[in-house]
Design a binder for these strands. Structure first.
Lengths: 201, 201
DNA sequence: ATCTCACTGTTCGTTTTTCAACATTTTGGA
DNA sequence: TCCAAAATGTTGAAAAACGAACAGTGAGAT
């Protein structure tokens, strides 16, 4: 049995409305009536899916994180047992994810709503990176968790700067930058494939 | 009894899908399955409202013409018995209408679908203009129908050039241009209010 | 000429969304 | 403090949209 597409449409309309409202006012002051008005839906439809605005926001956050994970893992779909060092800029999909949810990221970066979200997203990034590193730990003296956290927050820093700068780079340029930085940090040649794809303009 | 908003949503989704498809392929080759797939609707929903693609297109055309008429008449809402000669660029709303349906206008201008549509739109414009002129015919030697048609096609020429140029002017700039042209053609001072609002850059 | 496959037009029963209405609670200004 | 307006949470019946299925059609390939 296929899922009823009306549910997704309604939920997406509600989330779009919520994002729009969060761009202009504080989350606490957003009413359900406002959301359904903007979403062009009956108020009963809201209550059918969510008890409160917080629950709607929670599901939106879950959507973002879920898309983040699948975007990060996207290169592994085509090539199983992928080597992190051999990533090419075109296969890095995480910046596409950020662009896809650019309005959401702008809200959480430029405001104090969701104070725990930034830590949560870094934790997710850390676990993703850690699951990569476990397969191939080059240096036994380096703690795996520490290295993962290091790289996760570094990547997040890249994202934050991109958001604050108003997305003046394309996702592809961001991927190029990331690979260039990785290559620069470890010039042993662990990211040779970035060679030649290294353009920022 | 209020109208059910689901109907409008479905119809709008179908029309948006049709416009998108007409931008890439010939109308004749567009299937109903394609339309409902792009509109993300069940095929039965299409047949509930329209028997064929042609009927959907017809309703879209009616929407455009209806919006054209109400946009043209918009200045008359605030000021009844409006004088055409005293139009200001900010009150001219017809170019906002064209911009609202810019994709549709681009399709009908750049293709040979709807060969009769351009004449139809000029006919509508002519009747709108004629209903204005009837109230105040300055020169009894000039035929009212001829003058209306003259002005209607002139206005349409302005629109065509705007569309073909890729909408490089804003609707407000177009309104300025129109009023400037009118003032230039009849320098007796019938459109003094255009003075000072005359900027194209 | 036959076959295949996508599109058509329609049906069925089910689920979602709709509007209108209601009592209650919360909010903000006088 | 009081009062009016707005928001809340819920109900019931009606309508729209849903997925799935079906037989029929037509175009293009074999």
């Amino acid at each position: 049995m296929k899922k009823d597409r009306r549910i997704d449409k309604s939920k997406n309309a509600l989330k779009d409305a919520l994002i729009l409202l969060m761009e202009e006012k504080e989350f606490k002051s957003i009413t359900i009536t406002e959301i359904v008005h903007l979403a062009n839906l009956n108020r009963g439809t809201f209550y059918k899916h969510y008890p409160t605005q917080e629950e709607l926001l929670n599901e939106l956050i879950e959507d973002v994180l879920s898309d983040l994970v699948s975007s990060y893992r996207d290169p592994y779909i085509t090539v199983p047992n992928f080597d992190v060092g051999k990533l090419s800029s075109s296969s890095v999909k995480i910046f596409d994810h950020v662009e896809r949810y650019s309005r959401f990221y702008t809200i959480i970066v430029n405001s104090n709503v969701l104070p725990g979200f930034q830590n949560r997203i870094c934790q997710v990034l850390k676990e993703l990176i850690q699951s990569d590193l476990i397969k191939l730990m080059p240096n036994p003296e380096i703690d795996c968790s520490l290295l993962s956290s290091y790289n996760a927050y570094a990547l997040f820093g890249l994202i934050i700067e991109w958001v604050n700068g108003g997305f003046i780079f394309t996702p592809h340029q961001m991927a190029d930058q990331l690979i260039s930085i990785i290559s620069y940090q470890s010039p042993k040649g662990t990211a040779e494939t970035a060679k030649g794809t290294n353009s920022t303009g």
